[in-house]
Deep mutational scan, measured.
Amino acid sequence: MATGGRRGAAAAPLLVAVAALLLGAAGHLYPGEVCPGMDIRNNLTRLHELENCSVIEGHLQILLMFKTRPEDFRDLSFPKLIMITDYLLLFRVYGLESLKDLFPNLTVIRGSRLFFNYALVIFEMVHLKELGLYNLMNITRGSVRIEKNNELCYLATIDWSRILDSVEDNYIVLNKDDNEECGDICPGTAKGKTNCPATVINGQFVERCWTHSHCQKVCPTICKSHGCTAEGLCCHSECLGNCSQPDDPTKCVACRNFYLDGRCVETCPPPYYHFQDWRCVNFSFCQDLHHKCKNSRRQGCHQYVIHNNKCIPECPSGYTMNSSNLLCTPCLGPCPKVCHLLEGEKTIDSVTSAQELRGCTVINGSLIINIRGGNNLAAELEANLGLIEEISGYLKIRRSYALVSLSFFRKLRLIRGETLEIGNYSFYALDNQNLRQLWDWSKHNLTITQGKLFFHYNPKLCLSEIHKMEEVSGTKGRQERNDIALKTNGDQASCENELLKFSYIRTSFDKI
């Protein structure tokens, strides 16, 4: 039985969820670079991206490699990797027998973001014989899940209580170790020597080791999670996991709180800001991140802002960003909400898709409305799209047979046209069989910064309504002859009103 693990408890099935942008060198404390989270699957090609990484700022997932063999891993080693800020997950990587050479110096898994409450997941690794993470000293947050690894031993010899604050939620089941077939031998045991430290858990006094050649490092209890030197002297209180010299914040392997210019500090002093819960960055760093993602459509890219001495992905609820200094300031009234469309555009074809934009005031991208039916549609669209004030790209209304009016965009005031449909149009209306009105132009103002209007096959939309939009939106004169079809717009509506004058002759039985 794995020490510190839980057996036999019912657990939810383990679901495996399925960018080499360097964020800056980590400095003297770390020998390499800070790398983003990685999802490495199918083959070993991307694994080489770990070569210079000291910190993975995010998670590391290595999974679904069915053609790899043990010899493929023999020359692979990433000794610079010290810390993973989120979680480490391995799933069905064939041929991998140990992690001792792959990650010989991995010391800390912070667990800032977890995989279903777990910071370390080893699942269905069919050839893994031992973990071998002999320098792993601290899992700051989260638990361990090690399950269905039929060859995995050296679990009962690990004292997880020396690595985690609590072992109650560890789930370590259905491994070879369960069948008591392992016969784990710690260093020196074969020669009758006791080389590794022994600890007591559940009444068992057991030597602690990761492999037959690597003991588990056990520091004096007084050192807590700070770690200790090879001689057993406690590291500085700002260290986490390990250090090369005692009581020196510049000799830590990793930091308990924050890293700044080669030393570990309790908090980031001005003019620095907390970033990702582990390091200090200056304003320029946060500003660069903001600008890199301002026009990016890459998933996970955030326009970072500053709030409460932190550089964070977005302002919290009730705050909006001051564009001059990136500071989050309290909103006066309802907060603006910028919604970034991942692929640059979004099609609204149902109430469900409209709900995804609920509360958005600025759309960074283009909207395509293609709704053919739905219950209580006008009210639903207004509830979900009615706060949109600005669209950076274009607005396209296409084959939306259920629409009679666009009044559900009740606050839309600006279409920038930074991206144009077919390279020309910022407003595009095609084949809307029941569209009769755009907006009530006596109450609604709309500016279209650039781009043209396109109207074709809107049989109940009168040309007068379209011409009014040209005047109000500032697009009059931009359109070419064929942009607004004269014969297919309003051709099934009563669009022309003329005053009919009647004269009559009164007659009676005795007068003409």
Rank of each mutant, 00 (worst) to 15 (best):
V121H: 05
S296T: 14
Q276S: 13
M65C: 03
E57F: 02
F275S: 03
D159A: 07
D184C: 15
D248S: 08
N295R: 12
N295Y: 13
L60W: 00
C268G: 00
H214V: 11
G188H: 12
P316A: 07
P330D: 15
S237N: 11
S77A: 02
C196M: 03
K251C: 09
E49D: 10
N135M: 14
T45S: 05
C239M: 00
K129F: 05
S225K: 08
C219V: 04
P246T: 02
L99T: 06
V93I: 04
F91N: 15
V144E: 01
L89M: 15
G95K: 06
A119N: 01
R298P: 10
I109R: 00
C182Q: 12
I56P: 00
P220V: 05
P249F: 02
H274V: 11
Y154M: 11
A119D: 00
A198D: 11
M137V: 11
W278K: 00
E71G: 06
H302A: 12
M83R: 00
C239I: 00
I201R: 07
C264F: 01
E147T: 15
G142T: 00
K80R: 09
N282D: 01
H59M: 09
G142E: 01
L88E: 00
R69C: 13
T157K: 05
L47W: 03
P104N: 00
L164N: 06
K310T: 04
S161A: 14
L128W: 01
K100Y: 07
N308L: 13
C182S: 08
P270V: 04
I222A: 15
L96V: 09
F103A: 01
C243I: 01
L174P: 13
F275T: 03
L260T: 08
Y94C: 12
I185P: 14
V121E: 00
R162Q: 14
E130F: 12
L44I: 11
E231G: 15
D178Y: 10
I122Y: 00
Y304T: 14
G183I: 07
N202A: 09
D261Y: 15
H28W: 07
F91E: 02
V265E: 04
M125D: 05
C315A: 06
I312Q: 04
D86A: 02
K217N: 15
I146Q: 03
S143M: 13
Q287W: 14
I82H: 07
N202G: 14
T45P: 14
D261H: 15
D72T: 10
C153V: 01
K191E: 03
E238N: 09
A198I: 11
L63M: 07
N175T: 13
L233K: 08
L233R: 14
L99I: 12
K191F: 13
N179V: 11
N202C: 06
P104A: 02
R141W: 10
L174S: 11
C243E: 00
C293V: 05
T267S: 05
E49F: 10
H28F: 13
H48G: 02
N195T: 11
G58E: 00
T320D: 08
V144L: 08
H307A: 03
G300C: 11
T140N: 10
G192M: 13
T189D: 10
N52I: 02
C264G: 00
E51K: 01
N170Y: 03
Y154H: 13
E57L: 05
S284C: 02
L120S: 00
C264S: 01
Q204C: 02
R298A: 12
V253A: 13
T250N: 10
H59K: 00
K176L: 03
Y118K: 05
N138H: 11
T107M: 06
V55T: 04
P104R: 01
P246C: 10
D159G: 09
Q299G: 06
D72H: 03
P31V: 06
T85S: 08
R145C: 09
S98Y: 06
P334L: 07
S166I: 12
K80C: 04
R279V: 10
S98F: 02
E168T: 10
V34A: 09
H236E: 06
R256V: 11
C228P: 02
L233H: 10
S166P: 12
E207S: 06
L128N: 01
P336Q: 04
H212D: 14
G32M: 07
N170F: 09
I84Y: 00
C53K: 00
K100V: 06
L332A: 15
L90S: 02
F116G: 13
N150Y: 05
E97A: 09
K224A: 10
R46T: 02
N105I: 02
P79M: 03
Y304M: 05
P249R: 07
P187H: 04
L114S: 07
G203V: 07
R145E: 02
D178E: 11
D159M: 04
V173C: 15
G318W: 12
W278L: 06
C311E: 03
N295Q: 09
N309R: 12
N322F: 14
V55F: 02
C209E: 05
I146Y: 03
I185E: 04
C196F: 10
E168M: 08
T267P: 02
C228V: 08
Y171C: 02
P270S: 11
L327S: 05
C223M: 02
G142V: 01
C286Y: 08
D86N: 12
L133I: 09
T267F: 15
G188N: 05
P79K: 03
Q299N: 09
F66V: 13
C235D: 00
Y272K: 05
V121M: 06
V218E: 11
S77V: 07
L155V: 15
E314S: 05
L131P: 01
L89S: 02
F205V: 14
V108S: 08
N257F: 04
S324I: 01
P316T: 04
Q216N: 14
R46A: 10
G132F: 00
E33K: 10
K310W: 14
K148R: 15
N43Y: 07
D75S: 10
G142A: 02
K67T: 06
C209K: 13
L29G: 14
F123G: 13
Q287V: 08
P249Y: 03
C311L: 04
L260S: 05
S296G: 12
F78Y: 10
L152Q: 06
N170A: 09
W160S: 01
P246S: 15
W160G: 01
S143T: 09
T107S: 12
I82S: 08
Y304A: 04
G95Q: 13
C293Y: 02
F103L: 04
F103M: 04
G188W: 14
E71F: 12
H212C: 11
T229L: 12
V144P: 02
N150L: 10
S225H: 13
L164G: 15
Y87F: 03
L90K: 00
Q276H: 04
L50D: 00
L102C: 02
L131W: 02
Q245I: 09
